[in-house]
Amino acid sequence: MKLSTSQVRFLRSQAHSLKPVVLVGANGVTENLLEELDVALNTHELIKIKVRAEEREERDQMIDRICQKSGAIKIQRVGHNLTLFRRNPAKPKIILPK
């Protein structure tokens, strides 16, 4: 799914008040974390994740792996916080602008 600039801007504004629902800790990206992420994305569609990695390169690798494995789109990253979006095909909750 490809998002337009206005859709990304809209999702950023929607995510502004969200708190992280998934925390990536010392164990990194595990199968259990990916299952939790899948449940959160199916439930909310738009979520924030806190990635606890000290090195920027390590954090970027974790973010890339999370996006690849989950099929979610990275909306933005601010420090350790990552915002992801994945449409729930069965029950869409967020209506995107055209």
Rank of each mutant, 00 (worst) to 15 (best):
N42A: 08
G25L: 01
N88R: 10
M1R: 09
V24A: 01
P92N: 02
R59Q: 12
E57Y: 09
V78H: 07
E31I: 00
N27T: 13
V21L: 04
I95Q: 13
A90N: 11
K19S: 15
A15Q: 03
N32W: 00
P20A: 01
Q14V: 13
S70A: 09
L34D: 00
N81H: 12
T30D: 11
D64P: 10
I95D: 03
K93I: 09
A40N: 03
P20F: 01
A15P: 07
L41N: 03
V29I: 09
I73D: 00
A26M: 01
S6E: 15
H80E: 14
A72I: 02
Q61H: 13
I95R: 14
G79H: 05
S13N: 15
V22S: 00
L82S: 02
V51Q: 05
L84A: 05
K93S: 12
T5N: 13
L46Y: 04
L37N: 03
L18D: 03
H16T: 15
R65H: 08
H80M: 10
L33M: 02
A53V: 08
N32V: 06
Q7C: 12
V51A: 07
F10Q: 07
A40V: 09
V29S: 04
M1C: 07
G28Y: 04
Q14K: 15
V24C: 03
P89D: 07
L46N: 02
L46W: 01
G28F: 05
L23Y: 14
P89I: 07
R12P: 01
A90S: 14
K91Q: 12
P20G: 05
N32M: 06
L23G: 04
Q61D: 07
I49A: 04
N27H: 13
L34V: 04
V8R: 12
I49P: 04
V22C: 02
V24M: 01
E58H: 14
K91W: 08
I73P: 01
T5R: 14
K50M: 04
R87N: 10
L18R: 01
N88V: 04
L82E: 02
R52G: 12
L18H: 03
Q68L: 15
R52W: 12
A40C: 09
K98V: 11
V29T: 01
N27Y: 03
I66E: 00
V51D: 01
H16G: 07
L82F: 05
N81Y: 11
E57K: 14
K74D: 00
N27D: 15
E36N: 11
V51G: 06
F10I: 06
E55Y: 07
K19A: 13
L3K: 04
Q61K: 15
E58V: 15
R9V: 14
R52L: 11
H80P: 00
A40M: 12
I75V: 13
A15R: 06
T43V: 07
L96Y: 03
K19N: 12
P20C: 01
A53P: 05
L11W: 11
K98F: 08
T83S: 11
L23C: 03
K98N: 10
L11R: 05
K69R: 15
P20Y: 02
E55P: 02
S13R: 15
T83V: 14
I75D: 06
Q7M: 08
H16Q: 14
K48L: 01
L82C: 05
M62K: 14
D38Y: 09
